[in-house]
Design a protein around this nucleic acid. Structure first.
Length: 862
RNA sequence: GGGUGCGUAGCUCAGAGGGAGAGCGUCUGCCUUACGAGCAGAAGGUCGUAGGUUCGAGUCCUGCCGCACCCACCA
C-alpha cells in the first residue's frame, strides 16, 4: 500500500464504515460474555451536537474495546420521537410556511411530523455513521415504532390495573406556549430579581386595611382570601374579618394558616387558589372557592372583570396602573425569587389546576433505591449516586399526560353512554359494560420520557419474549450526561425492576456536559455551538473522537475550544507518518519470532507492555482520558522520538530483520490500542502492515505480557536518554548546531557498547573516548555516581560553563539539603516506612557523590 | 434554604499522601534517511486563602473568599 506524506482523513474515512457494516462486524457474535449498550436515543428534532458526539464516542470506545476483548457485543441504536420538542420544531417549520397545526388538523399534522421524523432519522443515522459508531443497524428502534408502542400500552395498562397510574385534579405546570402540562422535571427554575408589590386590602367595615405582598399582582383577580399566621400577634384580632378585594369589589375573608411566614413581606398573604400550589393547599384546608382567571394561553378570562382578554403581563401592567391610581399600591421592593420556565420553549410556566394522569412513584421507587444503595446498579463517578438517591427519596408523582398530538396516545377509552372508563392494550370499539359503540379515546398523549423509560427492554423486543431479550437483558453499561439522570436514568431503573424484575444495566457512566470556551452551555440561541460533523470534515473524525476522549476526565463539564482538535489531528498525522516510515522500510519482511533483542528493543517492548496494561485498566475503569493520554505519550514520545530515532541508523544493516519485526509488533499493538479511539486511521494503517488480516475491528485486544517487562533495559536506556539530553543541552546552550558531531569523553565505569552506540547516534557524537582523568576545557554533559560525560567544545567559553555548573550545583545542593533535613528528623525516621527512608538515603549518597564531582569540576575550571 | 463540583504555568486542563505534569502560547536553534501538522533545547508555578491532621499535604479535614451547577412550594 502506498501511504502519502500526509494524513488525509476524508480519503480514509469514507471507505471503511460501509465495509464494516456489510461484513456484519457490528452485530453480536452470539458467543462469549455479552456486553450490551443501548444508545441514548437522539431526538428527531434536528442534528447531532457536540454532546452527542462525546456520548457516542465514549460508547463506541467501550464497545470496540470489548469487541476486541472477545465479548459478545451489542450496541442498539435508535431515535426518540421527543414529544414536545419535535412538535415544537414542526410547528415552527409550519409557521415559516405561514401555517399552523390547527389549520392542518390533527391527522394531517401528525402526517407532517412523520415525514419530518423520517427525514431527520435519516440525517441522524448518517451523522452517527460519520462518527464511526459501531452500532448494530439491524436492530435500530424508534420510540414510536410498533413494537415500542405495544410496550408502552402494556406498561400503562399494567400500572393502571395495579393502581399505580391514576387520573386526578391537581396543581400542575402549564406551558401557555406549548399548551400542555409538564412534569416537575420539565420546569427549569431560574433565580431572578423580581418586584414585590405591597397592596392595600381595605376591610369591608371600613375599619382600616391589611397590606399583602405579592410578586404577581395580576393574580389578585382570582383571590379568595387573605391569610396570616395564627400566632402572629399583629393580625390575631383581624382573623375572620372580611376585606374588599380592590379592583374586583369582591368580599374575601382573612383566614389563619400555618403556611404563612410572619417574617416575610407584611406577614399577610393573598390567596389565589387556582394559580399557586401553596395557595391551593391553603384553600383546600379552608374550603375556599377557586377562581380560575386564565385561559390556556395565559390570557385573562371572563373571571377577570375588566381585564378580560389581556395576557398575563399586560394584565399585570393594567392592574398595577389601576392599583396605583386608586391608591392601593403601598410600595414596591426588589426581591430575588425562582421563576419556572418550560425546558422546551423557555416561556414562564403557569401553575394551573387540572385533571391529569399521574404515575404513583413512591411504591415504584423502593426497588430503584435499594438497587443503587446496594450497588447492583453502579454510578461512575459515584458521586452521582447521591444525586440520584436524593431525588428518588423525595420523588413525587409523575404527571405523564400531555396535551400534544405527537406521541403515544393514552390507551383509555370513555364510554359516551354509560361513562365507563376502559383501559386496554388494543383499540376498543365497543363498551364492555353497556355495549355502546360510542367510545372516545383519551385525547392526551404520554410524556415522551414514558417510552424512554422502557428503552433498555423495549428495544430488545419486550413484551415479546425474544431471543435478544433473553440473551442481552440486562444491558451492561449506560453512558449518558447528568442532565438526564432524573428524566431518564431514574425512570429506566424503576421500569426495569417493575417489568423485567431486574436492573436495566449494571453501570451508569455519567460523562460531562460540553460547554463553550467561556463555560456557557452550547445553544442555538447563543450561536456558540460547535457542530461535530463540521469538525469531523475539517479535522477528521478520528482526531475529533480522540480529542473528546482525552478531555473526558471525570469532572462535571468540558470547556471546549476548537483548537483542541488541531493538537490531535497532528497526533493522527504523527501516527500516519510513523507507520509510513515503518512500511517504507519493510522490504522483504518475514514474520519471524522476536529474538536476540537489542537494548532499545527491550526498552520499547517493556514500555509497550506497560502501556497495554495501563490502557486496558483505564478503559475498564472508564478513565478514557488516562487511556488516551497513555497512548499519546507512548506513541509520540517513546515510540517516535526515541525508538524510531534510535533504530534509524541500523535500518540498512544486518539488524534490519530484527528491527522490522519489532517495529511491526509495536505498530500492530499500538494500532490495536488506538482502534477504539481512532477506528478509521487504525484500520487504514493496520491494513498496510504485513501481519494484517481481515479487519482490525475484529482483531484481538493486546494482552499484557509480563515477560516483556524489562527493568534493566528501562534503566539502561533511561541513562542513555539522560546522557543524550545532556549532550544536546550542552550544544543548545553553547550555541553548537545539533548536527555538528563532537567528541565526547567518558570518565568512570565505561558504557556498554550498545549504550555508546545509541548515545553516539542520538546525540550526534563523532567519537566516544574513555579517559582516566577529567579532560580539560570540556563542557559537562552528564554526571552521576558511576559515569561522567563531557563534551569536547572547541573554544569553550569558560565563564558560561562555570555558570552552567554553578547553576547545577546550586540545584543539587538544594536537593541535598532537603533530603538531609528529612533524614535528620527523628519523627521521620520513626514513622516513615522503611522504603521511603531507604530511598532518601540512596538519594543523599547519590547527590553527595555527584556534588563532589561537580565541585571538583568547577574548581578545575577556575 | 439545602447539596455538588471547581479554583494547579500566560490560556485550557490532567494529577489525589513521599520534593509539580501535558497541550496550546512564548523564547533559542534546526532542510536531521517518516512527519515544519516536524525535530532539539529553554523560560515559566510559595497548586485560591487561613488553620488543622500527618514524620510528610496540590493530594485528607475544617473555616473563609471566588466561580459554576443541581435540588427546594416562602408569597
Amino acid at each position: 500500500m502506498d501511504l502519502g506524506t500526509r494524513y488525509t482523513p476524508e480519503q480514509i474515512e469514507k471507505k471503511w464504515y460501509e465495509k464494516w457494516v456489510e461484513r456484519g462486524y457490528f452485530k453480536p457474535r452470539g458467543v462469549g460474555k455479552p456486553f450490551v449498550i443501548v444508545i441514548p436515543p437522539p431526538n428527531v428534532t434536528g442534528t447531532i451536537h457536540m454532546g452527542h458526539a462525546l456520548n457516542l464516542t465514549l460508547q463506541d470506545i467501550l464497545v470496540r474495546f470489548k469487541r476486541m476483548q472477545g465479548y459478545d457485543t451489542l450496541w442498539v441504536p435508535g431515535e426518540d420521537h421527543a414529544g414536545i420538542a419535535t412538535q415544537n420544531a414542526v410547528e415552527k417549520y409550519l409557521e415559516s410556511q405561514g401555517k399552523n397545526r390547527h389549520q392542518l388538523g390533527k391527522e394531517q399534522f401528525i402526517k407532517v411530523v412523520w415525514e419530518w421524523t423520517t427525514k431527520y432519522r435519516t440525517y441522524i443515522r448518517e451523522q452517527i455513521k460519520t462518527l464511526g459508531a459501531s452500532v448494530d443497524w439491524s436492530r435500530e428502534r424508534f420510540t414510536l415504532d410498533e413494537g415500542l408502542s405495544k410496550a408502552v400500552r402494556k406498561v400503562f395498562v399494567e400500572l393502571y390495573k395495579k393502581g399505580l397510574i391514576y387520573k386526578g385534579k391537581y396543581m400542575v405546570n402549564w406551558c401557555p406556549r406549548c399548551k400542555t402540562v409538564l412534569s416537575d422535571e420539565e420546569v427549569e427554575h431560574e433565580e431572578k430579581t423580581s418586584k414585590l408589590y405591597f397592596i392595600r386590602y381595605p376591610f369591608v367595615d371600613g375599619d382600616g386595611e391589611i397590606v399583602v405582598a405579592t410578586t404577581r399582582p395580576e393574580t389578585m383577580l382570582g383571590d379568595t382570601a387573605v391569610a396570616v399566621n395564627p400566632s402572629d400577634e399583629r393580625y390575631i384580632k383581624l382573623i375572620g374579618k372580611k376585606v374588599l378585594l380592590p379592583l374586583m369589589n369582591r368580599e374575601i375573608p382573612v383566614i389563619a394558616d400555618q403556611y404563612v411566614d410572619p417574617e416575610f413581606g407584611t406577614g399577610a398573604v393573598k390567596i389565589t387558589p387556582a394559580h399557586d400550589p401553596n395557595d391551593f393547599e391553603v384553600a383546600q384546608r379552608h374550603n375556599l372557592p377557586l377562581v380560575d382567571i386564565f385561559t390556556d394561553d395565559a390570557v385573562v378570562n371572563e373571571n377577570g372583570g375588566k381585564y378580560y382578554g389581556l395576557d398575563r403581563y399586560k394584565a399585570r401592567e393594567a392592574v398595577l396602573k389601576d392599583l396605583e391610581e386608586q391608591g392601593y399600591l403601598v410600595k414596591v421592593e426588589e426581591i430575588s425569587n425562582a421563576i419556572g420556565y418550560c425546558y422546551r420553549c423557555e416561556n414562564v410556566v403557569e401553575p394551573r389546576l387540572m385533571d391529569q394522569w399521574f404515575v404513583k412513584m413512591k411504591p415504584l421507587s423502593i426497588k430503584a433505591i435499594e438497587a443503587v444503595e446496594n450497588g447492583e446498579v453502579k454510578f461512575v463517578p459515584d458521586r452521582w449516586k447521591k444525586v440520584y438517591l436524593h431525588w428518588m427519596h423525595n420523588v413525587k408523582d409523575w404527571c405523564v399526560s400531555r396535551q400534544l398530538w405527537w406521541g403515544h396516545q393514552i390507551p383509555i377509552w370513555y364510554c359516551q353512554d354509560c361513562k365507563e372508563v376502559i383501559v386496554s392494550e388494543i383499540d376498543v370499539t365497543q363498551c364492555p359494560k353497556c355495549g355502546s359503540k360510542s367510545l372516545k379515546q383519551d385525547e392526551d398523549v404520554l410524556d415522551t420520557w414514558f417510552s424512554s423509560a422502557l428503552w433498555p427492554f423495549s428495544t430488545l423486543g419486550w413484551p415479546e419474549e425474544t431471543e435478544d431479550l433473553r440473551k442481552y437483558y440486562p444491558t451492561t453499561t449506560l453512558v449518558t450526561g447528568f442532565d438526564i439522570i432524573f428524566f431518564w436514568v431514574a425512570r429506566m431503573i424503576i421500569m426495569g425492576y417493575q417489568f423485567m424484575n431486574e436492573k436495566p444495566f449494571s453501570d451508569v457512566y455519567i460523562h460531562q456536559l460540553i460547554r463553550d470556551k467561556f463555560g456557557r452551555r452550547m445553544s442555538k440561541s447563543l450561536g456558540n455551538g460547535i457542530d461535530p460533523i463540521e469538525m469531523s470534515s475539517k479535522y477528521g473524525t478520528d482526531p475529533v473522537r480522540f480529542t473528546l476522549a482525552i478531555l473526558a476526565a471525570q469532572g462535571s463539564d468540558i470547556k471546549f475550544d476548537e483548537r483542541y482538535f488541531d493538537t490531535y489531528r497532528k497526533f493522527a498525522n504523527k501516527i500516519w507518518n510513523a507507520t509510513r516510515f515503518a512500511v517504507m522500510n519493510l522490504e522483504g519482511y518475514e514474520n519471524v519470532n522476536l529474538s536476540s533483542l537489542s537494548l532499545v528493543d527491550r526498552w520499547i517492548l517493556s514500555r509497550l507492555a506497560k502501556t497495554i496494561k495501563i490502557v486496558t485498566e483505564a478503559l475498564e475503569n472508564y478513565e478514557f482520558n488516562v487511556a488516551a493520554k497513555q497512548i499519546y505519550d507512548f506513541f509520540w514520545d517513546e515510540l517516535c522520538d526515541w525508538y524510531i530515532e534510535a533504530v534509524k541508523p541500523q535500518l540498512n544493516g544486518s539488524e534490519k530483520r530484527r528491527i522490522q519485526n519489532v517495529l511491526v509488533k509495536l505498530l500492530d499493538d499500538s494500532l490495536r490500542l488506538l482502534h477504539p479511539f481512532m477506528p478509521f486511521l487504525s484500520e487504514e494503517l493496520w491494513q498496510a502492515l504485513p501481519i494484517a488480516n481481515e479487519s482490525i475491528v475484529i482483531a484481538s485486544w493486546p494482552q499484557f505480557d509480563s515477560s516483556l517487562v524489562d527493568e534493566d533495559a528501562e534503566k539502561s536506556f533511561g541513562r542513555v536518554m539522560n546522557i543524550v539530553r545532556g549532550i544536546r543541552n550542552v550544544k543548545a546552550e553553547l550555541n553548537i548546531p545539533v548536527r555538528q558531531p563532537l567528541n565526547v569523553f567518558v570518565l568512570g565505569k565505561t558504557l556498554t557498547d550498545e549504550e555508546e552506540f545509541y548515545i553516539s547516534k542520538l546525540a550526534v557524537v563523532d567519537k566516544v573516548e574513555y579517559v582516566e582523568f577529567k579532560p580539560r576545557k570540556c563542557a559537562t554533559a552528564y554526571v552521576d555516581e558511576e559515569k561522567q560525560v563531557f563534551v569536547d567544545v572547541e573554544g569553550l567559553d569558560l565563564q558560561s560553563e562555570i555558570k552552567r555548573l554553578e547553576k547545577n550545583i546550586s540545584k543539587l545542593r538544594d536537593d541535598l539539603d532537603w533530603n538531609l533535613k528529612k533524614l535528620s528528623d527523628r519523627d521521620f525516621l520513626e514513622h516513615a516506612p522503611e522504603s521511603v527512608i531507604e530511598e532518601c538515603k540512596q538519594k543523599i549518597a547519590n547527590i553527595e557523590q555527584r556534588l563532589k564531582i561537580m565541585r571538583e569540576l568547577l574548581e578545575d575550571l577556575k
